[in-house]
């Protein structure tokens, strides 16, 4: 399990930001060749990001590159240049089943040519159209490289012709669909960014809302958002304490030969034990506990 609570977008043609990407505290960074780069700088950003991945130390942070769509003029060149320096993953905008199949094949060819382990470069489809949302299952099944799905609500609501709001009621269905399908296929569900970087209260509420329906992480568009998102997605002290008590009670029950037992007057069964184990594992990955 890899923690992917935050994925921080960094503009791909900004050297000053790229070289600080690894020290800002995000679990993943997304070096962006798409929307953050103007059309006349696509070539420059591609070379800069390639060099950044080859030369900079990202301090153990997962490095993801958002390429341009392979339906346009830049996507194929992006993959051909970027995959050769082995980013952890490629983020595919407006991903379709066909796009993912084609990118999977391209990555396999490049991995063979470069002597990388086959399948080592992962893929994250970006769901940001109505058709993309409805076909998400097929898109996930199109490649074993898929490790997460990222929901892009700005483009999705534009495609739907509806207004994007601070409360996010309009993406309730999209979040549920992404969270449920990702859970079914055991991959991460990454929530859309919260656009107002000055509205911290709104960010926290939005992140809690996403977490409550099963999203496992969230994109950030400013380093200031990272800690607040981590606070929401990391297990709380109370959750960790309860999880420890559940597992301790389980040990006692096992010794006494009981299959089902109770804690604080409530029945504890397999799903609760599993949740407790997941919480402690996440807490360990987040550095909140040692064992």
């Amino acid at each position: 399990m890899k923690l992917r609570r935050t994925m921080l977008f960094m503009p791909g043609n900004n050297p000053g930001m790229l070289q600080n990407a690894g020290i800002l505290g995000a679990d993943s960074v997304i070096l962006d060749l798409e929307d953050a780069v103007s059309l006349d700088e696509k070539d420059a950003a591609r070379v800069l990001v390639r060099n950044a991945i080859s030369n900079l130390n990202f301090s153990g942070c997962e490095v993801v590159v958002r390429i341009n769509s392979i339906k346009g003029d830049y996507g194929y060149d992006d993959i051909n240049v970027i995959a050769r320096v082995k980013p952890d993953a490629i983020l595919v905008p407006k991903a379709t089943e066909e796009d993912i199949e084609e990118i999977d094949e391209m990555l396999s060819i490049i991995e063979r040519e470069e002597g990388f382990k086959l399948g080592s470069i992962k893929i994250i489809p970006l769901v940001e159209t109505a058709i993309g949302l409805e076909n998400i299952r097929e898109t996930i099944l199109a490649s074993k490289r898929n490790i997460a799905v990222l929901l892009g609500a700005e483009d999705l609501t534009a495609d739907m012709g509806i207004k994007r709001t601070r409360e996010g009621e309009e993406i309730f269905y999209a979040r549920n669909r992404v969270a449920s399908i990702c859970k079914a296929y055991k991959i991460d569900a990454i929530d859309t960014p919260f656009a107002d970087v000055n509205d911290i209260e709104g960010l926290i509420e939005d992140t809690k809302r996403a977490k409550s329906i099963g999203m496992t992480g969230k994109t950030a568009i400013n380093p200031r958002q990272i800690d607040y998102i981590h606070d929401v997605f990391s297990p709380s002290r109370e959750e960790i304490e309860y999880a420890r008590r559940v597992l301790a009670a389980k040990e006692v029950a096992l010794k006494e030969g009981k299959g089902v037992f109770s804690l604080d007057g409530k029945m504890v069964d397999a799903p609760i034990i599993q949740r407790a184990e997941t919480i402690l594992h996440k807490a360990k990955l987040a550095g909140l506990i040692r064992e």
Partner: peptide, 17 residues
Amino acid sequence: GALDYTIKARVETAIRR
């Protein structure tokens, strides 16, 4: 104040253009 990786990238881009 560019680092080496940036200097190399910008020279390469300018030459290719």
